[in-house]
Design a protein around this nucleic acid. Structure first.
Lengths: 210, 210
DNA sequence: TTTATTTAGGAATGATCATTCCTAATTTGG
DNA sequence: CCAAATTAGGAATGATCATTCCTAAATAAA
Protein backbone atom coordinates (compact mmCIF):
# COMPACT_ATOMS: atom_id res chain seq x y z
CA UNK A 1 0.00 0.00 0.00
CA UNK A 2 1.99 2.87 -1.33
CA UNK A 3 1.04 6.03 -3.23
CA UNK A 4 1.36 5.85 -6.99
CA UNK A 5 2.03 8.35 -9.72
CA UNK A 6 0.56 11.73 -8.85
CA UNK A 7 -2.18 13.39 -10.83
CA UNK A 8 -1.26 15.59 -13.71
CA UNK A 9 -4.40 17.73 -13.29
CA UNK A 10 -6.52 19.42 -10.66
CA UNK A 11 -9.78 17.62 -10.07
CA UNK A 12 -11.78 20.78 -9.34
CA UNK A 13 -10.45 22.58 -12.40
CA UNK A 14 -11.22 19.58 -14.57
CA UNK A 15 -14.74 19.28 -13.22
CA UNK A 16 -15.25 22.96 -13.86
CA UNK A 17 -14.11 22.64 -17.45
CA UNK A 18 -16.36 19.63 -17.97
CA UNK A 19 -19.25 21.58 -16.50
CA UNK A 20 -18.68 24.38 -18.96
CA UNK A 21 -18.65 21.95 -21.86
CA UNK A 22 -21.91 20.31 -20.79
CA UNK A 23 -23.38 23.72 -20.09
CA UNK A 24 -22.51 24.92 -23.55
CA UNK A 25 -23.60 21.97 -25.62
CA UNK A 26 -25.80 19.81 -23.40
CA UNK A 27 -25.44 16.21 -22.33
CA UNK A 28 -26.02 14.35 -25.57
CA UNK A 29 -24.08 16.67 -27.84
CA UNK A 30 -20.97 16.68 -25.66
CA UNK A 31 -18.75 13.71 -26.49
CA UNK A 32 -16.07 12.21 -24.33
CA UNK A 33 -13.56 13.45 -26.88
CA UNK A 34 -14.75 17.00 -26.36
CA UNK A 35 -14.55 16.56 -22.62
CA UNK A 36 -10.98 15.32 -22.98
CA UNK A 37 -10.15 18.42 -25.02
CA UNK A 38 -12.00 20.78 -22.69
CA UNK A 39 -10.46 19.43 -19.51
CA UNK A 40 -7.03 18.53 -20.85
CA UNK A 41 -7.42 15.26 -18.98
CA UNK A 42 -6.89 11.89 -20.64
CA UNK A 43 -9.92 9.68 -21.26
CA UNK A 44 -8.62 7.11 -18.85
CA UNK A 45 -8.15 9.60 -16.05
CA UNK A 46 -11.59 11.06 -16.65
CA UNK A 47 -13.15 7.65 -16.18
CA UNK A 48 -10.93 6.81 -13.20
CA UNK A 49 -11.65 10.09 -11.47
CA UNK A 50 -15.26 10.86 -12.29
CA UNK A 51 -16.77 7.60 -13.48
CA UNK A 52 -18.66 7.36 -16.75
CA UNK A 53 -20.13 10.20 -18.76
CA UNK A 54 -23.41 10.28 -16.91
CA UNK A 55 -21.74 10.34 -13.50
CA UNK A 56 -19.44 13.14 -14.60
CA UNK A 57 -22.44 15.04 -15.86
CA UNK A 58 -24.24 14.65 -12.54
CA UNK A 59 -21.18 15.87 -10.66
CA UNK A 60 -20.90 18.87 -12.95
CA UNK A 61 -24.59 19.60 -12.46
CA UNK A 62 -24.32 19.37 -8.69
CA UNK A 63 -21.35 21.68 -8.74
CA UNK A 64 -23.21 24.18 -10.89
CA UNK A 65 -26.31 24.14 -8.73
CA UNK A 66 -24.29 24.66 -5.56
CA UNK A 67 -22.52 27.64 -7.09
CA UNK A 68 -25.67 29.11 -8.55
CA UNK A 69 -27.53 28.96 -5.25
CA UNK A 70 -24.63 30.55 -3.44
CA UNK A 71 -24.27 33.39 -5.95
CA UNK A 72 -28.00 33.96 -6.02
CA UNK A 73 -28.14 34.22 -2.24
CA UNK A 74 -25.37 36.83 -2.24
CA UNK A 75 -27.07 38.76 -5.01
CA UNK A 76 -30.35 38.99 -3.15
CA UNK A 77 -28.91 39.62 0.28
CA UNK A 78 -29.48 42.74 2.38
CA UNK A 79 -28.73 45.55 2.78
CA UNK A 80 -29.80 45.99 -0.83
CA UNK A 81 -33.51 46.84 -1.02
CA UNK A 82 -35.53 43.79 -1.95
CA UNK A 83 -37.17 45.08 -5.10
CA UNK A 84 -33.93 46.52 -6.40
CA UNK A 85 -32.15 43.26 -5.70
CA UNK A 86 -34.82 41.31 -7.58
CA UNK A 87 -34.61 43.61 -10.55
CA UNK A 88 -30.85 43.51 -10.70
CA UNK A 89 -30.86 39.75 -10.45
CA UNK A 90 -33.28 39.44 -13.35
CA UNK A 91 -31.37 41.93 -15.47
CA UNK A 92 -28.16 40.17 -14.65
CA UNK A 93 -29.44 36.82 -15.81
CA UNK A 94 -31.00 38.32 -18.91
CA UNK A 95 -27.68 39.90 -19.77
CA UNK A 96 -25.81 36.63 -19.34
CA UNK A 97 -28.11 34.74 -21.70
CA UNK A 98 -28.13 37.46 -24.30
CA UNK A 99 -24.35 37.80 -24.33
CA UNK A 100 -22.92 36.01 -27.36
CA UNK A 101 -19.69 34.90 -25.68
CA UNK A 102 -19.37 32.03 -23.23
CA UNK A 103 -21.83 29.29 -22.39
CA UNK A 104 -25.40 30.24 -23.12
CA UNK A 105 -28.19 30.53 -20.67
CA UNK A 106 -28.42 28.51 -17.52
CA UNK A 107 -27.10 24.98 -17.17
CA UNK A 108 -30.16 24.05 -15.12
CA UNK A 109 -32.58 25.44 -17.69
CA UNK A 110 -30.80 23.65 -20.52
CA UNK A 111 -30.71 20.38 -18.62
CA UNK A 112 -34.36 20.66 -17.66
CA UNK A 113 -35.35 20.95 -21.30
CA UNK A 114 -32.99 18.26 -22.49
CA UNK A 115 -33.47 15.54 -19.88
CA UNK A 116 -36.56 16.15 -17.78
CA UNK A 117 -38.83 14.73 -16.69
CA UNK A 118 -37.69 11.33 -18.00
CA UNK A 119 -34.23 11.19 -16.47
CA UNK A 120 -34.55 9.81 -12.97
CA UNK A 121 -31.04 10.76 -11.86
CA UNK A 122 -31.26 14.34 -13.00
CA UNK A 123 -34.84 15.08 -11.94
CA UNK A 124 -34.34 15.27 -8.15
CA UNK A 125 -31.25 17.45 -8.55
CA UNK A 126 -33.09 19.94 -10.73
CA UNK A 127 -36.08 19.81 -8.44
CA UNK A 128 -33.97 20.66 -5.42
CA UNK A 129 -32.16 23.41 -7.29
CA UNK A 130 -35.47 24.94 -8.33
CA UNK A 131 -36.76 24.72 -4.79
CA UNK A 132 -33.64 26.39 -3.44
CA UNK A 133 -33.89 29.27 -5.86
CA UNK A 134 -37.58 29.78 -5.18
CA UNK A 135 -36.97 29.70 -1.44
CA UNK A 136 -34.36 32.43 -1.79
CA UNK A 137 -36.78 34.51 -3.85
CA UNK A 138 -39.51 33.92 -1.33
CA UNK A 139 -37.36 35.25 1.51
CA UNK A 140 -36.54 38.35 -0.52
CA UNK A 141 -40.21 38.95 -1.24
CA UNK A 142 -41.07 38.67 2.43
CA UNK A 143 -38.35 41.16 3.14
CA UNK A 144 -39.77 43.53 0.54
CA UNK A 145 -43.22 43.19 2.03
CA UNK A 146 -41.90 43.94 5.49
CA UNK A 147 -40.16 47.06 4.21
CA UNK A 148 -43.25 48.19 2.30
CA UNK A 149 -41.66 47.86 -1.14
CA UNK A 150 -43.78 44.94 -2.23
CA UNK A 151 -47.56 44.65 -2.08
CA UNK A 152 -48.51 42.89 1.17
CA UNK A 153 -51.44 41.01 -0.31
CA UNK A 154 -49.18 38.87 -2.49
CA UNK A 155 -48.54 35.29 -1.49
CA UNK A 156 -44.75 35.13 -1.13
CA UNK A 157 -44.39 31.57 -2.33
CA UNK A 158 -46.54 32.00 -5.41
CA UNK A 159 -44.84 35.27 -6.20
CA UNK A 160 -41.44 33.64 -5.88
CA UNK A 161 -42.46 30.85 -8.22
CA UNK A 162 -43.84 33.40 -10.66
CA UNK A 163 -40.57 35.35 -10.67
CA UNK A 164 -38.54 32.21 -11.06
CA UNK A 165 -40.70 31.15 -13.98
CA UNK A 166 -40.17 34.50 -15.63
CA UNK A 167 -36.44 34.19 -15.03
CA UNK A 168 -36.42 30.83 -16.75
CA UNK A 169 -38.26 32.41 -19.64
CA UNK A 170 -35.52 35.00 -19.93
CA UNK A 171 -33.07 32.16 -20.30
CA UNK A 172 -34.94 30.87 -23.30
CA UNK A 173 -35.87 34.10 -25.01
CA UNK A 174 -32.40 35.53 -24.43
CA UNK A 175 -31.07 33.14 -27.02
CA UNK A 176 -33.09 34.85 -29.69
CA UNK A 177 -33.61 38.41 -28.52
CA UNK A 178 -30.97 40.90 -27.55
CA UNK A 179 -30.54 42.62 -24.23
CA UNK A 180 -31.86 45.84 -25.78
CA UNK A 181 -35.19 44.10 -26.36
CA UNK A 182 -35.28 42.25 -23.07
CA UNK A 183 -34.18 45.03 -20.72
CA UNK A 184 -37.40 47.03 -20.72
CA UNK A 185 -39.51 43.96 -20.12
CA UNK A 186 -37.93 43.26 -16.76
CA UNK A 187 -39.67 46.30 -15.29
CA UNK A 188 -42.96 44.92 -16.53
CA UNK A 189 -42.32 41.63 -14.79
CA UNK A 190 -41.94 43.44 -11.49
CA UNK A 191 -44.76 45.89 -12.03
CA UNK A 192 -47.34 43.63 -10.43
CA UNK A 193 -45.28 43.29 -7.26
CA UNK A 194 -45.02 46.96 -6.55
CA UNK A 195 -46.97 48.32 -3.64
CA UNK A 196 -49.71 50.60 -4.88
CA UNK A 197 -49.78 53.76 -2.81
CA UNK A 198 -53.32 54.94 -2.23
CA UNK A 199 -52.80 58.36 -0.67
CA UNK A 200 -56.47 59.27 -0.58
CA UNK A 201 -59.25 56.78 0.17
CA UNK A 202 -60.41 55.15 -3.04
CA UNK A 203 -57.77 52.47 -2.69
CA UNK A 204 -59.64 50.43 -5.20
CA UNK A 205 -57.74 48.00 -7.36
CA UNK A 206 -59.04 45.51 -9.77
CA UNK A 207 -58.04 41.96 -9.09
CA UNK A 208 -56.03 40.23 -11.76
CA UNK A 209 -59.04 38.32 -13.01
CA UNK A 210 -62.78 38.32 -12.58
CA UNK B 1 -42.47 8.32 -68.16
CA UNK B 2 -45.03 6.34 -66.21
CA UNK B 3 -46.05 6.51 -62.55
CA UNK B 4 -44.43 3.94 -60.29
CA UNK B 5 -45.48 2.12 -57.19
CA UNK B 6 -47.71 4.30 -55.05
CA UNK B 7 -46.79 5.44 -51.55
CA UNK B 8 -47.68 3.24 -48.67
CA UNK B 9 -48.00 6.21 -46.31
CA UNK B 10 -49.41 9.69 -46.09
CA UNK B 11 -46.76 12.37 -46.24
CA UNK B 12 -48.56 14.75 -43.89
CA UNK B 13 -49.24 12.05 -41.33
CA UNK B 14 -45.64 10.90 -41.45
CA UNK B 15 -44.32 14.44 -41.02
CA UNK B 16 -46.64 14.89 -38.09
CA UNK B 17 -45.38 11.73 -36.43
CA UNK B 18 -41.78 12.75 -37.03
CA UNK B 19 -42.54 16.16 -35.53
CA UNK B 20 -43.93 14.52 -32.42
CA UNK B 21 -40.81 12.39 -32.05
CA UNK B 22 -38.46 15.38 -32.40
CA UNK B 23 -40.72 17.38 -30.10
CA UNK B 24 -40.58 14.68 -27.48
CA UNK B 25 -36.89 13.88 -27.47
CA UNK B 26 -35.14 16.67 -29.33
CA UNK B 27 -33.00 16.61 -32.44
CA UNK B 28 -29.90 14.81 -31.25
CA UNK B 29 -31.63 12.21 -29.12
CA UNK B 30 -34.03 11.15 -31.87
CA UNK B 31 -32.46 8.55 -34.13
CA UNK B 32 -33.50 7.63 -37.63
CA UNK B 33 -34.54 4.27 -36.25
CA UNK B 34 -36.93 5.96 -33.85
CA UNK B 35 -38.29 8.07 -36.68
CA UNK B 36 -38.88 4.94 -38.71
CA UNK B 37 -40.78 3.42 -35.80
CA UNK B 38 -42.71 6.60 -35.06
CA UNK B 39 -43.77 7.22 -38.64
CA UNK B 40 -44.12 3.63 -39.76
CA UNK B 41 -42.24 4.66 -42.88
CA UNK B 42 -39.20 2.80 -44.13
CA UNK B 43 -35.78 4.46 -43.85
CA UNK B 44 -35.48 4.62 -47.58
CA UNK B 45 -38.81 6.31 -48.05
CA UNK B 46 -38.03 8.79 -45.29
CA UNK B 47 -34.89 9.85 -47.08
CA UNK B 48 -36.57 9.86 -50.48
CA UNK B 49 -39.48 11.95 -49.25
CA UNK B 50 -38.00 14.32 -46.70
CA UNK B 51 -34.26 14.33 -47.31
CA UNK B 52 -31.77 13.73 -44.53
CA UNK B 53 -32.40 13.98 -40.81
CA UNK B 54 -31.70 17.68 -40.58
CA UNK B 55 -34.00 18.52 -43.47
CA UNK B 56 -36.76 16.42 -41.99
CA UNK B 57 -36.27 18.18 -38.69
CA UNK B 58 -36.55 21.60 -40.33
CA UNK B 59 -39.74 20.55 -42.11
CA UNK B 60 -41.19 19.29 -38.85
CA UNK B 61 -40.23 22.53 -37.14
CA UNK B 62 -41.80 24.65 -39.87
CA UNK B 63 -44.95 22.60 -39.66
CA UNK B 64 -45.07 23.00 -35.90
CA UNK B 65 -44.53 26.75 -36.01
CA UNK B 66 -47.24 27.21 -38.61
CA UNK B 67 -49.71 25.25 -36.52
CA UNK B 68 -48.74 26.95 -33.27
CA UNK B 69 -49.18 30.42 -34.74
CA UNK B 70 -52.54 29.49 -36.17
CA UNK B 71 -53.82 27.97 -32.93
CA UNK B 72 -52.49 30.88 -30.92
CA UNK B 73 -54.26 33.37 -33.15
CA UNK B 74 -57.55 31.53 -32.72
CA UNK B 75 -57.07 31.33 -28.98
CA UNK B 76 -56.53 35.07 -28.63
CA UNK B 77 -59.17 36.16 -31.11
CA UNK B 78 -62.21 38.28 -30.30
CA UNK B 79 -64.92 38.29 -29.14
CA UNK B 80 -63.21 36.90 -26.05
CA UNK B 81 -62.05 39.75 -23.80
CA UNK B 82 -58.34 40.38 -24.23
CA UNK B 83 -57.22 39.83 -20.66
CA UNK B 84 -59.29 36.70 -20.30
CA UNK B 85 -57.88 35.37 -23.56
CA UNK B 86 -54.34 36.02 -22.38
CA UNK B 87 -54.92 34.28 -19.10
CA UNK B 88 -56.54 31.27 -20.70
CA UNK B 89 -53.72 31.00 -23.19
CA UNK B 90 -51.11 31.02 -20.44
CA UNK B 91 -53.03 28.53 -18.31
CA UNK B 92 -53.51 26.34 -21.33
CA UNK B 93 -49.82 26.21 -22.12
CA UNK B 94 -48.92 25.67 -18.49
CA UNK B 95 -51.32 22.74 -18.36
CA UNK B 96 -49.85 21.19 -21.48
CA UNK B 97 -46.32 21.28 -20.13
CA UNK B 98 -47.30 20.01 -16.73
CA UNK B 99 -49.30 17.11 -18.13
CA UNK B 100 -47.30 13.89 -17.90
CA UNK B 101 -48.65 12.33 -21.10
CA UNK B 102 -47.64 13.29 -24.60
CA UNK B 103 -44.73 15.40 -25.77
CA UNK B 104 -43.51 17.82 -23.19
CA UNK B 105 -43.47 21.56 -23.41
CA UNK B 106 -43.13 23.42 -26.63
CA UNK B 107 -41.19 22.20 -29.63
CA UNK B 108 -39.91 25.72 -30.23
CA UNK B 109 -38.75 26.15 -26.65
CA UNK B 110 -37.00 22.81 -26.69
CA UNK B 111 -35.33 23.51 -30.00
CA UNK B 112 -34.24 26.96 -28.89
CA UNK B 113 -32.44 25.50 -25.92
CA UNK B 114 -30.95 22.60 -27.82
CA UNK B 115 -29.76 24.26 -31.02
CA UNK B 116 -29.68 28.04 -30.68
CA UNK B 117 -27.96 30.31 -31.30
CA UNK B 118 -25.34 28.18 -33.08
CA UNK B 119 -27.50 26.43 -35.64
CA UNK B 120 -27.80 28.70 -38.65
CA UNK B 121 -30.64 26.79 -40.29
CA UNK B 122 -32.81 26.69 -37.22
CA UNK B 123 -32.16 30.20 -35.91
CA UNK B 124 -34.16 32.20 -38.47
CA UNK B 125 -37.11 29.84 -38.19
CA UNK B 126 -37.25 30.20 -34.42
CA UNK B 127 -36.73 33.93 -34.68
CA UNK B 128 -39.68 34.27 -37.04
CA UNK B 129 -41.84 32.05 -34.86
CA UNK B 130 -41.02 34.15 -31.82
CA UNK B 131 -41.78 37.32 -33.72
CA UNK B 132 -45.10 35.95 -34.89
CA UNK B 133 -46.18 34.97 -31.40
CA UNK B 134 -45.15 38.31 -29.95
CA UNK B 135 -46.99 40.15 -32.69
CA UNK B 136 -50.17 38.24 -31.89
CA UNK B 137 -49.74 39.06 -28.22
CA UNK B 138 -49.12 42.69 -29.05
CA UNK B 139 -52.37 42.93 -30.99
CA UNK B 140 -54.27 41.42 -28.10
CA UNK B 141 -52.71 43.87 -25.68
CA UNK B 142 -53.69 46.80 -27.88
CA UNK B 143 -57.19 45.40 -27.96
CA UNK B 144 -57.24 45.18 -24.18
CA UNK B 145 -56.03 48.72 -23.88
CA UNK B 146 -58.71 49.94 -26.25
CA UNK B 147 -61.38 48.18 -24.22
CA UNK B 148 -60.00 49.50 -20.95
CA UNK B 149 -59.01 46.09 -19.58
CA UNK B 150 -55.28 46.73 -19.78
CA UNK B 151 -53.38 49.71 -18.43
CA UNK B 152 -52.97 52.25 -21.24
CA UNK B 153 -49.51 53.39 -20.15
CA UNK B 154 -47.97 50.04 -21.05
CA UNK B 155 -45.92 49.74 -24.20
CA UNK B 156 -47.71 47.01 -26.17
CA UNK B 157 -44.60 45.57 -27.78
CA UNK B 158 -42.61 45.36 -24.54
CA UNK B 159 -45.59 43.93 -22.73
CA UNK B 160 -46.05 41.32 -25.41
CA UNK B 161 -42.41 40.32 -25.18
CA UNK B 162 -42.69 40.16 -21.41
CA UNK B 163 -45.71 37.86 -21.60
CA UNK B 164 -44.05 35.68 -24.18
CA UNK B 165 -40.97 35.41 -22.00
CA UNK B 166 -43.11 34.37 -19.07
CA UNK B 167 -44.87 31.82 -21.25
CA UNK B 168 -41.53 30.34 -22.24
CA UNK B 169 -40.65 30.15 -18.55
CA UNK B 170 -43.82 28.16 -17.95
CA UNK B 171 -42.60 25.71 -20.54
CA UNK B 172 -39.44 25.14 -18.57
CA UNK B 173 -40.77 25.17 -15.04
CA UNK B 174 -43.74 23.02 -16.00
CA UNK B 175 -41.40 20.09 -16.39
CA UNK B 176 -40.64 20.19 -12.71
CA UNK B 177 -43.65 21.73 -11.05
CA UNK B 178 -47.24 20.60 -11.24
CA UNK B 179 -50.20 22.55 -12.52
CA UNK B 180 -51.38 22.99 -8.93
CA UNK B 181 -48.25 24.97 -8.19
CA UNK B 182 -48.19 26.88 -11.47
CA UNK B 183 -51.86 27.82 -11.73
CA UNK B 184 -51.90 30.57 -9.10
CA UNK B 185 -48.79 32.19 -10.49
CA UNK B 186 -50.45 32.97 -13.82
CA UNK B 187 -52.60 35.58 -12.14
CA UNK B 188 -49.48 37.20 -10.78
CA UNK B 189 -47.99 37.40 -14.23
CA UNK B 190 -50.98 39.38 -15.43
CA UNK B 191 -51.36 41.52 -12.34
CA UNK B 192 -49.09 44.23 -13.69
CA UNK B 193 -51.14 44.55 -16.84
CA UNK B 194 -54.43 45.23 -15.16
CA UNK B 195 -55.89 48.67 -15.45
CA UNK B 196 -55.98 50.36 -12.07
CA UNK B 197 -59.36 51.96 -11.74
CA UNK B 198 -59.13 55.36 -10.06
CA UNK B 199 -62.78 56.28 -9.63
CA UNK B 200 -62.02 59.44 -7.70
CA UNK B 201 -59.09 61.76 -8.60
CA UNK B 202 -55.90 60.58 -6.88
CA UNK B 203 -54.99 58.37 -9.84
CA UNK B 204 -51.54 57.99 -8.42
CA UNK B 205 -49.55 54.87 -9.11
CA UNK B 206 -46.00 54.05 -8.37
CA UNK B 207 -43.92 53.16 -11.39
CA UNK B 208 -42.31 49.75 -11.50
CA UNK B 209 -38.97 51.08 -10.32
CA UNK B 210 -37.66 54.18 -8.62
C1' DT C 1 16.89 -0.67 -5.36
C1' DT C 2 12.92 -3.23 -5.48
C1' DT C 3 7.99 -3.62 -5.33
C1' DA C 4 3.42 -2.29 -4.96
C1' DT C 5 0.40 1.24 -6.58
C1' DT C 6 -1.49 4.76 -9.18
C1' DT C 7 -1.78 7.56 -13.36
C1' DA C 8 -0.92 8.51 -18.46
C1' DG C 9 -0.94 7.19 -23.27
C1' DG C 10 -2.66 5.14 -27.11
C1' DA C 11 -4.80 1.61 -29.34
C1' DA C 12 -8.63 -1.45 -29.32
C1' DT C 13 -13.80 -2.86 -28.72
C1' DG C 14 -18.40 -3.19 -29.61
C1' DA C 15 -22.56 -0.42 -30.04
C1' DT C 16 -25.09 2.91 -32.36
C1' DC C 17 -25.47 6.35 -35.61
C1' DA C 18 -26.85 8.46 -40.34
C1' DT C 19 -26.74 7.23 -44.86
C1' DT C 20 -26.59 4.36 -49.10
C1' DC C 21 -26.76 0.11 -52.15
C1' DC C 22 -29.05 -3.47 -54.21
C1' DT C 23 -32.97 -6.06 -55.22
C1' DA C 24 -37.89 -7.19 -55.10
C1' DA C 25 -42.50 -5.38 -55.41
C1' DT C 26 -46.01 -2.59 -57.39
C1' DT C 27 -47.87 0.62 -60.15
C1' DT C 28 -49.11 3.15 -65.02
C1' DG C 29 -48.43 4.20 -69.89
C1' DG C 30 -47.73 2.04 -74.27
C1' DC D 1 -48.72 -7.99 -71.68
C1' DC D 2 -44.48 -5.28 -71.56
C1' DA D 3 -41.44 -1.57 -70.11
C1' DA D 4 -40.38 2.36 -67.57
C1' DA D 5 -40.77 4.30 -63.15
C1' DT D 6 -41.23 4.59 -58.35
C1' DT D 7 -41.43 2.70 -53.73
C1' DA D 8 -40.40 -0.92 -50.09
C1' DG D 9 -37.29 -4.12 -47.78
C1' DG D 10 -33.26 -5.41 -45.83
C1' DA D 11 -28.58 -5.62 -45.70
C1' DA D 12 -24.43 -3.06 -46.01
C1' DT D 13 -21.16 1.13 -45.14
C1' DG D 14 -18.32 4.11 -42.79
C1' DA D 15 -18.28 7.40 -39.01
C1' DT D 16 -18.67 8.36 -34.35
C1' DC D 17 -19.76 7.10 -29.90
C1' DA D 18 -18.75 5.50 -24.89
C1' DT D 19 -15.95 2.44 -22.72
C1' DT D 20 -12.03 -0.73 -21.77
C1' DC D 21 -7.42 -3.05 -22.37
C1' DC D 22 -2.70 -3.10 -22.23
C1' DT D 23 1.61 -1.11 -21.45
C1' DA D 24 4.75 2.62 -19.99
C1' DA D 25 5.73 6.09 -16.55
C1' DA D 26 6.03 7.93 -12.06
C1' DT D 27 5.64 7.89 -7.29
C1' DA D 28 6.16 5.99 -2.03
C1' DA D 29 7.07 2.50 1.12
C1' DA D 30 10.03 -1.51 2.19
Amino acid sequence: MTAGRPRDFDETTALDAAMRAFWDRGYHATSIGELVDATGVHRNSLYATFGDKKTLFLKALDSYIDGALQRFEEKLAPPRPALEALKEALVHYARIVATPAGPRGCFVTNTTIELLPQDKDVAPRIRNGFKGMVTLLEATIRRGQASGEIAPDLDPRDTALYLYTYGQGLRVVGRVWSMADLGPTVDLALRGLVQVSSPRGSGERKGPMP
